[in-house]
């Protein structure tokens, strides 16, 4: 029995950015592609502007819903330093998709901590395969800032073997009907950043 064919993705960001919806779409796409899936995320406190991490794993047989360090195939981040916070999950040859958004934690505003300087440089040094994109701007260009999560997910999809039809069906299944169109367009926009 081999666990090598289990795929893991970690999606991170700040509470309120739509990580959980992105996680749901990814899980749904993996189901549609014919796999058993386990996802995990922590709600509650984490939702109130805190650091949020969602984990999605799929394959023929998945045991742990938690990803072991150094095994995620893709790390998707909606905030730039959150990608650094969870960098240890990524496999050595894994793909990091990082949105250029910088959201100041309260600890920075109060002066207890410092937001790192030259984050793009840190990202380049931390990740051998990096897609650094401005998902918020791309979503704004489409007229809906809240679709930034789908832009990131679109870029994440370029590092995974899930057919485009499954992604589209997953978005249709997971998103309210009136938001399907904008989310599909945001996802497509994300796919162009590879």
């Amino acid at each position: 029995m081999s666990l090598e064919d289990v795929q893991s993705v970690v999606l991170v960001g700040v509470g309120g950015q739509g990580i959980l919806l992105a996680s749901e779409v990814l899980a749904q796409a993996a189901v549609l592609s014919g796999h058993r899936v386990k996802t995990n995320e922590v709600h509650g406190m984490a939702q109130r502007g805190g650091s949020v991490v969602a984990q999605i794993r799929w394959g023929q047989k998945v045991y742990s819903p938690l990803v072991a360090s150094g095994t995620a195939r893709v790390l998707g981040s909606l905030e730039q330093i959150e990608a650094l916070r969870y960098a240890h999950y990524l496999a050595p040859n894994g793909l990091a998709v990082v949105s250029a958004q910088a959201i100041m934690p309260m600890t920075v505003s109060t002066g207890e901590a410092i937001y790192p300087k030259d984050v793009p440089g840190l990202l380049k040094r931390s990740f051998s395969r990096l897609i650094y994109l401005d998902a918020a701007q791309a979503a704004l260009d489409l007229g809906e800032i809240r679709a930034a999560n789908m832009v990131v997910l679109g870029a994440v999809s370029t590092g995974l073997d899930i057919a485009i039809e499954d992604w589209r069906d997953a978005i249709v299944a997971s998103v309210k009907e009136r938001f399907v169109e904008i989310n599909l367009r945001a996802f497509e926009a994300g796919r162009s950043f590879s």
Partner: peptide, 16 residues
Amino acid sequence: MDAGQMALPPRPAVLC
């Protein structure tokens, strides 16, 4: 030995 995580500002939950 882990290379050690770089110092990042903590991001606790806050009132909305």
